[in-house]
Simulated scan of single mutants.
Amino acid sequence: MSTKETEQTIALAAIFQAAELVAGLAKSGQIENRHLEPLVSSILMVNASKTVDIYGGEWDYQSNLSLGKNTVHKALSKDRASVNPETLRYALSLIHLESKLAKSPDMLKSIGSKISVIEQKKDMYDSVLHENMIAAISGMYQDTLSTLSFRIQVRGESRFLQQPHTANQVRAALMAGVRAAMLWRQLGGKRWHLIFKRKALINALK
């Protein structure tokens, strides 16, 4: 097992954790903040020296991405049927959306500028999950990624998705998922790896 494969599984776990949170918000309007916080923090982590640092550091990333790791393991193994089909759809859609973003340097530059502005505001609040922080990240998603030709269609209970805070959480999770998908690609991850490198990725997850 290579170090690169281990790093790839970290990014993959983050993608699937974002996808699982979007599915949960769409279905019930509720998620555990402990699963969302490391993803939101990762959006603002632009100069990490190591992949693990993006999600809390060597000793924290495994717990911070536990939901995503478990979901990926099921998706790549014989337990795939137990994974919410919407979660799988969102995960693949995040990877596809990031591939569109990679071809838009102007949008990448715009996102970088917006992240800098949001990061400067972080110290004003007691948590990256403060509603103003989530709203700012949601606005960034709306102004950028939601304008691309490919859009992720979130399906669920309209009574939850129409609530402003829930909608903002969904977009923040999607933004974090795209950030993870970018990391996955930068580490050499390919969509076909999810089919033909399943055994290697499962071993790396362990």
Rank of each mutant, 00 (worst) to 15 (best):
81 A>E: 13
137 I>Y: 00
60 D>P: 00
87 T>G: 09
135 A>Q: 02
63 S>N: 04
86 E>T: 09
60 D>G: 01
65 L>Q: 04
54 I>R: 13
72 V>R: 04
128 V>R: 03
56 G>T: 08
42 S>L: 04
9 T>S: 13
177 G>K: 01
66 S>Q: 05
129 L>F: 02
20 E>G: 03
158 S>F: 09
168 N>M: 06
136 A>P: 01
150 F>A: 10
129 L>V: 10
197 K>G: 09
41 S>Y: 02
28 S>E: 06
54 I>L: 07
26 A>K: 07
177 G>C: 08
192 W>F: 15
175 M>C: 09
7 E>H: 14
181 A>F: 06
169 Q>C: 10
99 S>R: 15
132 N>W: 02
151 R>L: 00
74 K>H: 13
77 S>K: 13
99 S>W: 03
104 S>F: 09
160 F>H: 15
59 W>A: 14
28 S>I: 01
49 S>A: 14
61 Y>R: 05
172 A>F: 01
52 V>C: 12
184 W>C: 00
159 R>S: 11
44 L>F: 11
146 S>Y: 05
52 V>L: 10
105 P>N: 11
202 I>S: 11
145 L>W: 11
98 E>V: 00
139 G>Q: 02
145 L>T: 10
76 L>M: 09
68 G>N: 08
72 V>F: 07
52 V>G: 00
10 I>V: 15
167 A>S: 13
133 M>N: 06
9 T>M: 12
43 I>W: 00
31 I>E: 01
98 E>I: 00
81 A>R: 12
16 F>M: 14
165 H>V: 02
74 K>G: 08
12 L>S: 06
122 K>H: 05
130 H>Y: 06
67 L>Q: 05
173 A>L: 04
86 E>W: 01
29 G>Q: 03
64 N>Q: 07
6 T>L: 12
79 D>K: 14
157 E>H: 11
147 T>K: 15
158 S>T: 13
180 A>R: 00
103 K>G: 04
184 W>F: 15
90 Y>N: 05
195 I>K: 09
113 S>R: 08
96 H>D: 04
107 M>H: 04
102 A>M: 07
70 N>M: 13
147 T>S: 11
154 V>G: 05
44 L>H: 01
73 H>P: 00
144 T>Y: 11
99 S>M: 12
18 A>N: 04
